Simulated scan of single mutants.
Amino acid sequence: MSDIVRRSPVSALIIAIGVLVGVSFTLSKLVSMAGISALTALFWQVLLASIALLALSFRSKKRGALNTRHIPYYFGAGVFGVSGPALIGFLVLEHVSLGFYSALVTLSPLFTFAITALIARRMPSLQRLIGILIGLAGVSLATLGGFELSDVEPTWIALSLLGPLVLACGNVFRSYAYPPGGDPLGLATGTLLSQLLLISSLLFGRGSSIGDISVPPALLGTVFGIGSITALSYVLTFEVQRRTDGVGFAQVGYFATLSGIAIGAFAFREPLGFGLLGSLAILFLGLAITNGHLSIPPVLRSRSGRRQA
């Protein structure tokens, strides 16, 4: 892995992943609008990303481990972090706006916080909760204009809500099951290959051929873009997960939301709420507090300690 990535602050990597995810949402919507089936689009996304990561692995001489600890991790991280969210995105983005779906991703940090608290049977620190809530407030400012949902069936809205929930499950799973000493590139490669095996089995096990899942030439660039973004974002994902926990990583959702809303307004002429720049500043504040770059006032920490005692 590049030394630049290893030396980059966690917050910078979180922002980068969020922007990549927002761009990926945009490309996924283009594929959905073209009528490509969700499973077909997911197959090409994972295939291209797997090829890219395999090439990087051979070049860097990094190999993903194959043992009883890593193989379940590959499949769990893949289903929750790759196939599940991508499949939901391909399905719903044909029916809901990019801005609306991106806005729902802001629920991922709160879901992650709640699931982590349930598993650990204790509340994470007050500082992290305050940082997450500040981030949520920042994104809310960007979405004050609202979204037109009168023509959207409730089924698609409900399915859209599964996206941030599955992402949250992935954040927690990767955090708790992360193999000791795991290499981010090796883990990303193994995770995507596990999903390529799973999706190929689903497609070709029901009698599909390569011709049945072909992509129109006009969409090749879009599909290639999704695959490339997937490869890069998951290498960065496992690097961040190596250095922080699921609650910290979950803030990717905030930056994915803002980039998705901004790109949706530009590419699809979707409504853009006022205060995008202000919300971005608030987001940076929430990120700094959650990751410990800024501290909450001592009086708040002392009150929290007395309540827990």
Rank of each mutant, 00 (worst) to 15 (best):
I229K: 01
P184M: 02
T230I: 15
T222M: 08
R206V: 14
L192S: 05
L203G: 02
F204G: 07
G227Y: 04
L236A: 10
L198K: 00
V215E: 09
I199W: 06
G205W: 02
S208H: 12
L220W: 13
L185P: 02
G190I: 08
L219R: 03
L198V: 06
D212Q: 06
G205M: 13
G211C: 13
F224H: 01
I226T: 10
A188G: 08
L185Q: 08
A231S: 14
I226L: 07
P217H: 13
D183E: 12
V215N: 01
G181Q: 01
L197G: 12
L203H: 02
G181I: 06
L236T: 10
G205C: 05
L197P: 04
G211E: 07
S228R: 01
G221E: 09
G207P: 09
S201F: 06
A218G: 15
T191F: 07
L192F: 14
L236Y: 14
L220D: 04
G221F: 13
S228V: 11
I213G: 01
A231C: 07
D183Q: 06
P180D: 11
T189I: 03
L220A: 13
I226P: 09
G205I: 12
V235C: 02
S214Q: 12
L236S: 13
G221H: 10
L203A: 03
S208M: 13
F238D: 07
D183W: 04
G186D: 07
L236P: 15
A188L: 14
L220G: 05
G186V: 05
G211M: 03
Y234K: 03
A231D: 00
V215M: 11
L232I: 15
L202M: 02
P180W: 05
L220M: 10
Q195W: 00
L202V: 10
F224D: 02
S209Y: 05
L203I: 08
V223W: 02
L196Y: 00
P184A: 06
